[in-house]
C-alpha cells in the first residue's frame, strides 16, 4: 500500500488561448506522489504551479487547452488527452486548498452550508453531514466549531478562514491534498501555525500532500521531496535534503543562492533575466536564455531527465553523461526507487 502511487501526472501540456495568441504554459510536466508522501512544488510566480493543480482537479479555466498529458489519481485516469478530445472526470478523493482563503469561500453561504455540500458530494455521505462538518472543523483546530459552522466567511479572520478551507478539504475525505500557497495570503505570525497544522494532519491521516510554494525553505520544512519548476517545466526533483545539500540545476542553484535575502516575492533575484514569454517560449530548454552554462544545444533541444544521484533527477544537458531517462517514463523509474 505505502508505495503505491496516489497521483501521477504525465507529460502534461496546457496552453491558454488569449486574444494575442496561444500561451504555451505547461510544457510536459511529470510528477508522482506516493500514498502518504508530501511533495513540494516550488517555483516563482507565473511558472504554472496553479495551472498544474487545477489540471489535476479538473477545473482548468475555460480558455485552457490540454494539448497532451494524463493525470491518474489513485490508479484511475481523471484527465486525458486522447486523439480528438479531452476526457475529464471529477477526481474523487482529491481536495484542494486555494491560495486566497477569502476567494475560496462563498461569501453568501454559511461555513456549515458549504461544508455540508462537500461532505455530501465529495465524501458521498448524506446522513450526518452536519456532524462530519463540525468534526472536520475541530480537526482543523478551530475553537468553537459549532459556532463557526453557523458563521459566514466575513465573520472570520484570515487565519481562521484558511483553517476552514483546510477543514473543508478534510471533509471531502481525500487521500491527497493539493495546497496552493496556503500561507501566502496570511499574516506572517500565523503562516507557520497553518503550515504545521497541515503537515500534522497529513501525517496523522496518512494523506499525500502536494504543497505549492515559492519558498524553498517552506517546502523543505514540510515535504519529503521537492520538485523545482521553471516556466512550465520541472527542472529538478529529489528529496528535500538533496535539493538543499546538492542542487544540480543552474536554476535551483540560483534559487538557493538567493535564499538568504528571499522575502516572498522576487524569488530568483540571484539570477539575471526574466521568466520567458509564453507566447514564444524558447525552443529548447526554457531556462537557456537565463543560464550562464547554456550551449547551442540548450537553445535548440529540450533536455530529458538525468539521474544525477539515486532518486535525484535533473533536466539539464550538463548532466547528460549521467544515467539518462526519457522524460515520459521518469515517473515509473521513480516509483521503483
Amino acid at each position: 500500500m505505502k508505495n503505491e502511487e496516489a497521483l501521477a501526472v504525465q507529460n502534461l501540456r496546457v496552453n491558454y488561448k488569449i486574444y494575442r495568441g496561444i500561451l504555451k504554459v505547461l510544457d510536459g510536466i511529470n510528477l508522482t506522489v506516493k500514498r502518504g508522501e508530501k511533495i513540494g512544488l516550488v517555483g516563482e510566480t507565473g511558472c504554472g504551479k496553479t495551472t498544474t493543480l487545477k489540471a489535476i482537479m479538473g477545473i482548468l479555466a475555460g480558455n485552457a487547452i490540454l494539448s497532451s498529458g494524463r493525470v491518474t489519481v489513485n490508479g484511475k485516469v481523471v484527465l486525458q488527452r486522447s486523439a480528438h478530445h479531452m476526457v475529464r472526470k471529477s477526481a474523487k478523493r482529491v481536495a484542494m486548498i486555494f491560495q486566497d482563503p477569502t476567494a475560496s469561500l462563498n461569501p453568501v453561504f454559511t461555513i456549515g452550508e458549504q461544508m455540508e455540500l462537500v461532505v455530501r458530494y465529495a465524501a458521498n455521505r448524506s446522513s450526518s453531514a452536519r456532524e462530519a462538518a463540525v468534526n472536520a472543523l475541530r480537526l482543523a483546530q478551530l475553537p468553537d466549531a459549532e459556532r463557526i459552522h453557523t458563521n459566514f466567511p466575513f465573520q472570520l479572520s484570515g487565519g481562521m478562514r484558511q483553517r476552514v478551507c483546510i477543514a473543508m478539504a478534510l471533509a471531502a475525505e481525500p487521500n491527497i491534498i493539493l495546497a496552493d500557497e496556503p500561507t501566502t495570503n496570511l499574516d506572517v505570525t500565523i503562516q507557520d501555525q497553518v503550515l504545521k497544522l497541515l503537515k500534522r494532519l497529513c501525517d496523522e491521516q496518512e494523506l499525500a500532500l502536494v504543497l505549492v510554494t515559492h519558498s524553498l525553505g517552506v517546502a523543505r520544512e514540510t515535504c519529503d521531496r521537492i520538485y523545482v519548476m521553471y516556466a512550465g517545466t520541472i527542472v529538478e526533483y529529489a528529496s528535500s535534503q538533496n535539493i538543499f545539500e546538492n542542487p544540480y540545476h543552474p536554476y535551483t542553484r540560483g534559487l538557493l543562492a538567493a535564499l538568504p535575502r528571499l522575502t516572498g516575492e522576487g524569488i530568483a533575484e540571484g539570477i539575471e533575466g526574466r521568466i520567458p514569454d509564453y507566447l514564444n517560449p524558447p525552443q529548447g530548454c526554457r531556462f537557456a536564455p537565463r543560464c550562464e552554462h547554456a550551449t547551442e544545444k540548450c537553445f535548440s533541444t529540450k533536455p530529458g531527465f538525468y539521474e544525477a544521484e539515486d532518486g535525484h533527477f535533473v533536466s539539464c544537458f550538463l548532466y547528460e553523461t549521467e544515467r539518462g531517462v526519457a522524460s515520459d517514463v521518469s515517473h515509473s523509474s521513480d516509483t521503483e526507487s
Binding site: S90, A103, S104, N106, Y121, M168
Partner: peptide, 27 residues
C-alpha cells in the same frame, strides 16, 4: 463562475444544476 469557491464545489462533484441555481446565483 471562475472564482475559487465555485471551482472548488465543481471539483467536489456538486451538480451543475445546484451550482447555477443556488451557489453561483445568490452571490
Amino acid at each position: 463562475a471562475e472564482k475559487d469557491y465555485i471551482l472548488a464545489v465543481r471539483a467536489y462533484g456538486v451538480p451543475n444544476k445546484l451550482i447555477y441555481r443556488r451557489l453561483l446565483l445568490k452571490p
